[in-house]
């Protein structure tokens, strides 16, 4: 098992700021925009982006929610281990809003597919965009592409991408783990 650093702390910060500037460019004043982080790991990126956007724009009203997709998965009943659900917290209307769905790593696209379905239970947004920190390109199993991506990387199916966060793991950074061979876990 080998681990390779993809983004160190400095690159990590730069990437998050760049994503925020891209959002600012496309979301005029964020009046009708909301951020939704996908559980379990996308919420950290959503919160970080919210904090950074607050600093950059001074807009304190930007709404951020978290969405759990467990009950919308398409591999329920075909897995050995049942995934445990996390909290969903969306305390605002989605009707006619612009939604930015946020996840840390985009791989097969299946999580995002489930996320889109889960999100529609809360209303009909005007527009939905996808923002990811890491895009594992050429690995998609569904026609889903990100609108904003931090870094595009080429990986093999048996590789694993680990995103660490200051608040939970003690440091910011992204690593590529090769040769772990644990495919089910990799497909999270």
């Amino acid at each position: 098992m080998k681990s390779k650093l993809i983004l160190d702390k400095e690159q990590f910060d730069l990437t998050v700021s760049r994503l925020c500037y891209q959002l600012i460019e496309n979301h005029d004043g964020f009046d009708s925009t909301v951020l939704i982080g996908l559980q379990p790991r996308g919420i950290f990126l959503a919160n970080r982006i919210n904090v950074t956007l607050n600093k950059l724009t001074g807009n304190k009203d930007l709404k951020t929610g978290s969405l759990d997709i467990t009950f919308f998965r398409d591999d329920f009943r075909s897995r050995e281990n049942m995934p445990v659900a996390s909290e969903t917290r969306i305390d605002f209307e989605l009707e006619n809003r612009k939604v930015v769905l946020i996840d840390d790593v985009l791989f097969t696209g299946r999580t995002i597919r489930a996320g889109l379905d889960a999100m529609l239970s809360f209303g009909r947004p005007r527009k939905v965009e996808l923002l990811v920190l890491i895009d594992r390109r050429f690995a998609r199993q569904l026609p889903i592409e990100p609108d904003y991506s931090g870094r595009k990387i080429d990986t093999r199916a048996s590789d694993r991408v680990v995103v660490k966060w200051q608040q939970t793991d003690g440091q910011d950074g992204v690593w590529l783990i090769t040769g772990s061979g644990d495919t089910e876990k990799n497909n999270e």
Binding site: D68, T70, F71, F72, R73, F76, R77, V84, A85, S86, E87, T88, D117, A118, L120, S121, F122, G123
Partner: peptide, 27 residues
């Protein structure tokens, strides 16, 4: 505890505007 924790999640689901999830679609 596992049942309670899962029920917490479903309690949130049944208070959504659309109260349905597709989990047991083929059951």
């Amino acid at each position: 505890e596992h049942i309670f924790k899962t029920a917490d999640n479903f309690k949130e689901v049944i208070n959504r505007p659309i109260k349905k999830v597709p989990s047991l679609r083929d059951v």
